[in-house]
Simulated assay, not measured.
Amino acid sequence: MSPYTPLHHRLAQNIVEDAVLAGYLPGAHLVTSQLAAKFQISRTPIVRALELLTEQGVLERRSNRGYFILDLDRFDREEIQSDDDRLYWRAVNDIYDECLPENFDETLLIKRYEQPRRTVARLLQRLSDEGVLRRRVGVGWKIETVLRTPEDVRKSLRYRVSIELGALAEPGYHAPREDVLAAIREQKLILSEGTHSTETFERNARFHEKLVSWSNNSFFVEAAVQHNKLRRLWEYRHFKAAKDIRKSTEEHIEILRELAAGNTAHARDLLREHLEKRMHTQDSYAPSGSAPDDL
């Protein structure tokens, strides 16, 4: 059994992502207390995540001094995947392929996946946090609405056009330059990786949520966050080719650069083109039936 829990795995990935975004170089000191504050968690799981990364050769531990970056390129997503991630993907595929009833209780999953109750409880909580499941009044769970067809996705995109363009048209819309530059750096991470992963979707979702958040309208923000949960399974299952990911990401960066220059109206026009272009590409997406490359 692995000495590291799913929490340690996720924290390790978050630490590496944060270091890349911050532009840390080899030799940079990672301070445990600062990481604990950043991720709003106690120091103990942070230390375990740092130990995991040290075993990978990403970090080195110096006696009485702490952890220092050795080589971020040694970070191996495949190596730190967890059993919980693999179980999650089995459940995602079962939900998407309608292998599970709309309403069920945890006993069904315990038997189907031959997993202990505590493992299934973590799975259910994760799917609930992502908006895939909803706890029923009394006992059991209900599968929420998911996007299943290209037409569903086109309807979703029309909804997103109204929400996201509406947010950019809000009076007083303001995108702080430092926040925009940080968002550009995150998009460039996608270009440097060149492959689809679940993190690709998360970065994509953060891009669109960030655009909306700069409207300072909480109703738009809540709508964007909730809708990203709704479209998560479709995006996870229907992988685009690397060239399509690159093109989409380049469009994100172009939109952000216009915002950084203070050209909100032009950024809004580019965003409309970006979303409307997606409406015409849904039929070319084929489900993979498996997890992305990093799982």
Rank of each mutant, 00 (worst) to 15 (best):
L168W: 06
A286W: 15
L168K: 02
I110T: 13
Y67T: 02
R61Q: 12
E102S: 11
A286D: 14
Q115S: 13
K243R: 15
I95F: 11
F207C: 02
K210E: 15
V146R: 14
Q125C: 11
H208A: 02
L21D: 11
I190N: 00
F201M: 05
E144R: 08
T54E: 15
R158S: 07
P150D: 02
H208G: 04
E273H: 06
N204L: 09
E144S: 02
H280A: 10
Y96P: 14
H266T: 03
S215A: 01
R185K: 10
E178H: 08
R177P: 13
A175S: 06
S213W: 04
L259E: 10
D85K: 11
D76C: 01
F104L: 04
E258Q: 12
L275W: 03
E251F: 05
L147I: 00
R126S: 06
T107F: 08
R65M: 14
E60W: 12
E251R: 09
L189D: 03
V161P: 02
T119D: 12
G194H: 04
S192K: 14
E235G: 09
S290H: 15
P171A: 00
R185C: 04
S197A: 10
S248D: 14
L256M: 05
V58P: 12
L108V: 02
K111M: 11
A224I: 07
A183W: 10
I163L: 03
L109H: 05
L7W: 09
K142E: 09
R122M: 09
G140I: 04
V20Y: 13
R122Q: 12
V212Q: 10
T198C: 15
T5N: 10
E276P: 00
R246S: 09
S128N: 14
N216Y: 10
R65N: 12
S213L: 01
E130W: 04
V212I: 01
L11W: 04
R126V: 07
S288I: 14
I80V: 11
L11N: 05
L50W: 09
R134C: 04
R272P: 04
G66V: 15
K240T: 01
E130M: 03
R136G: 05
G289F: 02
R135F: 08
R232C: 07
R177Y: 13
I190G: 01
L87V: 08
Y24S: 13
E199P: 10
